[in-house]
Design a protein around this nucleic acid. Structure first.
Lengths: 265, 265
DNA sequence: CGCCAGATTGATACTGCTCAATGAATGTGG
DNA sequence: CCACATTCATTGAGCAGTATCAATCTGGCG
């Protein structure tokens, strides 16, 4: 366990799923926008790192990977945006994108010219506020991934990703044994998302299977033992009802290691 | 090199610095907001994971770490927000924060009640658009970190982080030998940011020093050989002027490995 | 049927972690 | 001003977890 700090105890992991759940964007209900629609085949890019992108996309269906490439060709998958996600935004419009978006399956997209969207933002504060919330949610997922890769071992990373993908598609943590989930990802995709090699992903998945916890074949995830899977992911069983709200007692932050009092604004 | 994909070449790393540069938030120029000001000592938390936060903060000066803790107490530093950054936002207001913010030095903050800010967002679309851009920039930094941790070796990670911190403070990549930068971070902070142990950080820094590339002592980074440091970070020398704009030729995305054509919307 | 991408498995090497001890720097109280 | 505590940095030895390389297997598909 890297960076282990014995004095600190904290149990927010379960609830952190709240912050990782997708926010569904319904731009089509907003007047003044005239989206076009488009269906992309598996393997095509929605947009590419290094090229600028004058269109924003709302994912309607399908699986997409958001990726970056390094100079040496190594690839990191940054996110698997769910339906409802917004793609194609960059800090300054016109700048080359710092990441790519690639369809893993056939994908339906709603397309908005970026200019039109920006114009509408100025006019419609609710739209801007919504986009803001979406960006914050994206950030939360990125943070979650960061903690996953930075702190967990390979086995836990995989379990954690599987749990999260399940939760994001289904809207809740897995709890029924034998639950199935269609997951059109290869071992290499998982590896690229988790900073591992596909060989090691294969071994880790095999361990999960051998322990009777879960099995991923044929683009289908089967969860035999949800509790064990959550444990493997490093998540205590999640009595969501029992959640007591965080008191300063139970939840302490990095600060507790180094210093004191919380600001009372 | 994990996840190496021989067929793909791409050279956007340098330019990706653009997306990682801080966006400075100047809320104080907006009428209708009445900020209070506050100075926090090193070691205090601005807010804590698990607690809700009813205030947003703009960093005016000082160093801060944004962190998450896992159940086992392991800590991941998610970001070092620069002055001008916005802290204390979460997807749904009132929900417990999924991360903490901790002062590493004495820190000056501008404080806005969240309700007031939200009210003002509804009224002022430019504000909302600005917050949106800031959230996107936060996401870009998180993505960059993700690629750093997921794809690079320890030595490269450290070099990369040093370069990035330098660039974010100074506004440009290091280019003068002997350049100094005040960096009030311990080895443990670097380790927690990079998914390493402080022991290994120490060794990697020593290697940088022994090679005459850079040296971090006494909270001061001294860069002897900027070019070598960029190389160590996996960044080719950055003729920013020479940047040719990405053509489909030079910049190819993950898609290129799997499939074809880019969408032409 | 042959091809091909993906999955699996084994053997081996290496990166980075763990544990442990020591050193340096800083601060604290008497 | 000194003795002591505390935190941070450094170094060594040994080990665990992952990567790498290579070979084989599998299933889908033209």
């Amino acid at each position: 366990m890297r960076g282990f700090r014995p004095a600190v105890v904290c149990s927010t992991a379960v609830d952190s799923y709240a912050s990782v759940m997708p926010v569904r964007l319904e731009l089509s209900t907003i007047k003044g926008l005239n989206p076009t629609y488009r269906t992309l085949a598996a393997g095509t890019a929605v947009y590419r790192q290094g090229e600028s992108c004058s269109t924003c996309f709302v994912v309607l269906s399908g699986w997409i990977a958001v990726t970056t490439l390094l100079d040496n060709g190594a690839c990191q998958i940054l996110d698997f945006p769910n339906p409802g996600a917004l793609l194609g935004c960059c800090p300054s419009s016109g700048a080359p994108m710092d990441h790519s978006a690639v369809c893993l399956t056939t994908t339906e997209l709603e397309c908005y010219p970026q200019q039109e969207l920006e114009r509408e933002i100025e006019r419609n504060p609710r739209l801007a506020a919504l986009l803001y919330r979406i960006a914050i949610a994206d950030r939360a997922r990125a943070y979650d991934q960061l903690a996953n890769i930075g702190l967990r071992t390979a086995h836990r990373r995989i379990a954690h990703l599987l749990v999260q993908l399940y939760a994001r598609v289904r809207g809740h943590l897995p709890n029924n044994p034998g639950e199935l989930l269609r997951l059109p990802l290869t071992h290499s995709h998982l590896a690229d998302a988790l900073g591992l090699t596909c060989v090691h992903v294969s071994r880790s998945l095999r361990a999960l299977k051998d322990k009777g916890i879960a099995h991923l074949t044929n683009h289908t995830l089967k969860i035999f033992d949800p509790v064990a899977l959550l444990q493997a992911a490093g998540i205590e069983t999640p009595p969501a009802e029992t959640y007591r709200g965080a008191t300063g007692q139970e939840m302490r932050a990095y600060a507790a290691v180094q210093g004191e009092s919380r600001i009372q604004p």
